[in-house]
């Protein structure tokens, strides 16, 4: 449960520094929105697609990751056909798909640890202003990863209990108890964090 979308690999894109990839993504999104010419957008789309499909994902995995987004883009494109000129629709589809492919490529080649190091750097100015502590962000992230399996197990237990008592399984009767039981742990978890000195200045 909750394994990252990172894919093991040794391609040049895997080895490229995370910061460079994120800056490239930002630059690409600005550049793609600056042009409307299919002559520029088509090569961009092909390059991003080529990059994404060369990262070691199987075709199936690769499509599964971007499938829903592509489907939405295509549905909206069909709607657009009735509303705006056809070359514009083509430009929009190519641009958005190129961007999505590049973004998916960054995700597939960057580990959570590497992302978090960049997040820590990005938070530095906020930290200097005293608005947030990077250590708190990684602690919160750790807590989520730690407790998702427990909360899911609790969800299944509540569902079982419903079944055992012959009560129909409705989201409402499950969500209420699930939230109460989970949030009630907050005090003990917070006490444990303080007792272990995790947030020492």
């Amino acid at each position: 449960m909750l394994t990252s979308l990172y894919v093991e690999g040794q391609t040049w894109f895997h080895r490229a520094p995370v910061r460079a990839k994120l800056i490239a993504l930002l630059a690409l999104s600005i550049a793609l929105f600056a042009t409307n010419s299919p002559l520029l957008l088509l090569p961009a789309f092909l390059l991003c697609g080529g990059l994404y499909f060369s990262l070691g994902l199987t075709l199936r995995q690769a499509f599964a990751r971007v499938g829903v987004v592509f489907f939405t883009i295509l549905v909206l494109a069909v709607v657009n056909l009735f509303l705006i000129p056809v070359p514009d629709v083509l430009a929009l589809v190519l641009r958005l798909m190129a961007l999505v492919l590049f973004a998916a490529a960054v995700t597939a080649t960057t580990t959570i640890g590497a992302f978090m190091d960049e997040v820590t750097v990005l938070l530095r100015p906020l930290e200097r202003l005293g608005l947030v502590r990077a250590a708190d962000v990684s602690l919160a992230l750790g807590l989520v990863l730690r407790f998702v399996p427990d909360i899911f197990a609790r969800y299944q237990a509540i569902r079982e209990a419903h079944r055992a008592r012959g009560v129909p399984i409705r989201p409402l009767t499950i969500i209420g108890p699930l939230i109460i039981l989970t949030l009630k742990d907050a005090d003990t978890i917070a006490a444990a964090i303080d007792a272990r000195g995790f947030r020492r200045q």
């Binding site: 750790g142 807590l143 730690r146 427990d150 742990d185 978890i189 444990a192 272990r196």
Partner: peptide
């Protein structure tokens, strides 16, 4: 002790 272990 489950509540005390807070990293995955």
């Amino acid at each position: 002790p489950q509540h005390q272990l807070i990293m995955p």
